[in-house]
Write a protein that binds this DNA or RNA. Structure first.
Lengths: 208, 208
DNA sequence: ACAAAAAAAGGAACGTGTTCCAATTCCGCC
DNA sequence: GGCGGAATTGGAACACGTTCCTTTTTTTGT
């Protein structure tokens, strides 16, 4: 993994790919911008196109639907979180503490832009089959984040039990976020749910 | 042509309330019918109105939005399940077995009408603040179903731990259904997730 | 530097959820 | 039995996601 001059492979392709990447980025940024200002309803495709300085048809060339657009933004956000955590892993001593710490931090970020979170969670909740791939990607990233937090500094592969626990926590996380964004529970409830679940699933006395 | 004696109280009000109740029912039935045939997208408000033999504006008088319509149908469905289980409680010996049994049964029903389930779960996943009340009602019914299954024949009130476990299982259930209806996982995965979670949360060795 | 191909622009048009309104029908009550 | 108000009807109209088409611009290969 040299910091190669000639772009290894995935980037490649001269001007076209560059301008396309830039366009894609502008569209995603416009999406986040609009979502931050007015949530899901403010992310109107015509406005996204205008804000990204791109034609409406172009938005659709890059993202097949509004749902997809928001889901890709969500996937990117989660991937960023994962990357950050790879560099700054939780330092707590126990799995429970690490998981709770990581998820509290994530939720703190999500709460700073509640409308963005709401838009993403809502897209997640309506996802159709044609977006199964990104939904899977998002859930895998979230599960991975939790798995890493569970068996933090250790380099061994996750046990099957850990993977199952991580999946449950991911599901609790998503459900709880859904409860928050649709106004059933306050934002603190997300942390509480996760702490409770982590406690029940990861407490030392439950380790086999 | 009164058939009923003097209706006790909740029904009350003569012809008006009766015809309104009938209208509401027709709308809900039309919704389920259309959902069964073509899922969420087939539940088009104009079609619902036509199938229920009612004007479009009338549908909106009874249900503020398509989302609300489907959520009320979902609440009713869950309430029915709950009522059924009150009469036919699970007979298994352990909490885990009872919970698994109840949820498997519920999922079996849901799988018979996958498009209906998909429409409902999808509405649930997009719920907005104005529908927080039904979303809460649905989650409470689902949690209640699970709580009852956990401490089945016993008549004591649920312990705090049981309530927390039930909530987690409810969240896993919802997330897993979401994964199924958006094509990320097969329908069996719902049962597997719930069995795994119930096992981890309710196994005897975890009882305190 | 030019021709062919690909991408983007610009904008019209369609479908469906939702809103609104005028006209009509129905209900409860005097 | 008729009156006042509420409920219902029927349908027009609007908003926004999505599709489609034509024209223009950009990119690539020679």
């Amino acid at each position: 993994m040299v910091i190669a001059e000639p772009e290894p492979e995935p980037a490649a392709e001269g001007a076209l790919a560059r301008s396309q990447a830039a366009r894609r980025r502008r569209v995603l940024d416009a999406t986040l911008q609009l979502a931050a200002e007015g949530g899901f309803d403010a992310v109107q495709m015509r406005d996204v196109a205008a804000a990204a300085d791109v034609a409406l048809g172009t938005v659709y060339r890059y993202f097949a639907s509004k749902e997809r657009l928001l889901l890709e933004a969500m996937a990117e956000q989660q991937a960023d979180l994962r990357a950050y955590l790879d560099v700054h892993p939780p330092r707590e001593a126990t799995p429970v503490a690490r998981v709770v710490s990581v998820l509290r931090g994530a939720n703190r970020s999500l709460r700073e832009y509640p409308d963005v979170t709401a838009a993403m969670v809502r897209s997640f909740g309506t996802a159709q089959i044609e977006n199964a791939d990104i939904v899977r990607r998002v859930t895998e990233i979230m599960t991975g984040i939790i798995t890493s937090a569970i068996h933090a500094p250790e380099r061994r592969p996750a046990t099957e039990r850990e993977v199952r626990v991580a999946r449950i926590l991911m599901q609790v996380w998503l459900s709880s976020l859904n409860g928050w964004v649709c106004g059933v529970d306050g934002p603190d409830r997300v942390d509480e749910d996760l702490a409770a679940a982590a406690g029940l699933l990861l407490s030392p006395r439950n380790d086999c």
